[in-house]
């Protein structure tokens, strides 16, 4: 049963990889294994994890969302521009904008039947353009009074970084949605066999749109967290985040063909990416060379996890 063997591989390879990587980096640089360093690592991973969690809903259905980095950047700009006037409501506004953009992208994909990678590429362009226009192409640094509003995002709380707590809450939320709601079941069914889900009366289009809404909202939330951590908003703040986010989902063992995957796998994948990054910086690998490695890792992980029986003609 090759299908089952691949499934076992998908399930255990990522965890084993993570363990091995942690040990390797720990052996090279013993202070890496200090609880404090590990907590730092976790808080550095949080933004990537949130971004990847959102897009994993879409990938589970067998689609893709390429607009997330533009959405995250736009969200940081929204926060930076409105936190003065709106206070905490500006965070809500940013996340709502993410949900709205996900909804529009989802509709373009489902109603107009545009393949998701193009629809979201286009939406990403619209978002990036909007961010450039409203920010006048500038990075906006938060002033002292504005910084009072972002305290909930950074710094420790009872000794634990707040990013980690936020990440854990979102993990719990996403896990519940995926495992315990009809929606979670429907998107798994759509990814694993869209024709059968459709014939079983699942409202396929609606569920897909919801997945895009979640992806957009999570991306915006990741942008809010970034704005909080860097105390600024910028139309290019989250650039270079798309590839690591998708890589995190895929490296964790979720197939881009959809159907199999879970938020826990995305967590493992995000941690792998983070450990590799930290490890490479420790060893002194140039940041640009890291990009090369991530590109290669993405292709490799896709090659291992993809379910080729689902795509008779690979385009």
């Amino acid at each position: 049963m090759p299908a089952q063997r691949i499934e076992r591989l998908r399930r255990f390879l990522p965890v084993a990889t993570l363990a091995v990587l942690v040990l390797i980096v720990g052996a090279l640089q013993p202070e890496f294994l200090n609880p404090d360093t590990l907590l730092d690592l976790a808080s550095d991973t949080a933004v990537l994890f949130v971004l990847a969690s959102g897009v994993s809903f879409v990938i589970l259905t067998g689609g893709i969302d390429l607009s997330i980095q533009a959405m995250a950047s736009l969200a940081s700009v929204i926060v930076a521009l409105t936190v003065d006037r709106l206070g905490y409501a500006s965070f809500v506004a940013a996340v709502a904008a993410g949900a709205l953009s996900g909804w529009l992208g989802g509709l373009a994909h489902v109603r107009l039947k545009i393949p998701s990678f193009v629809a979201t590429l286009a939406v990403g362009g619209v978002l990036a353009g909007t961010a450039l226009v409203v920010s006048h192409q500038h990075s906006i640094t938060l002033g002292a009074t504005q910084r009072a509003y972002i305290g909930w995002i950074t710094g420790p709380w009872l000794g634990i970084p707040r990013e980690v707590i936020i990440g854990a809450l979102l993990l719990f939320f996403a896990d519940t949605v995926q495992r315990r709601t009809p929606f979670g079941r429907y998107i798994a069914a759509i990814g694993a066999g869209e024709a059968a889900a459709y014939a079983s009366g699942v409202k396929v289009g609606r569920q897909k749109v919801v997945a895009f809404v979640i992806s957009g909202a999570f991306a915006a939330f990741a942008g809010v967290m970034l704005a909080g951590r860097l105390a600024s908003g910028s139309p290019t703040l989250a650039n270079e985040q798309l590839l690591p986010a998708i890589a995190a989902v895929v490296v964790g063992g979720t197939a881009i063909t959809g159907g199999v995957g879970s938020i826990w796998r995305t967590l493992v994948g995000a941690l792998i990416i983070s450990v590799v990054r930290t490890g490479m910086t420790f060893i002194g690998v140039d940041i640009f060379a890291q990009e090369i490695l991530f590109g290669a890792v993405l292709v490799f992980a896709v090659a291992v996890t993809i379910d080729r029986s689902k795509i008779p003609v690979v385009k």
Binding site: A192, A196, Y198, G259
Partner: peptide
């Protein structure tokens, strides 16, 4: 196998 069942569920 394609419309009746979601084989991987």
């Amino acid at each position: 196998r394609t419309e009746g069942l979601v084989l991987f569920l």
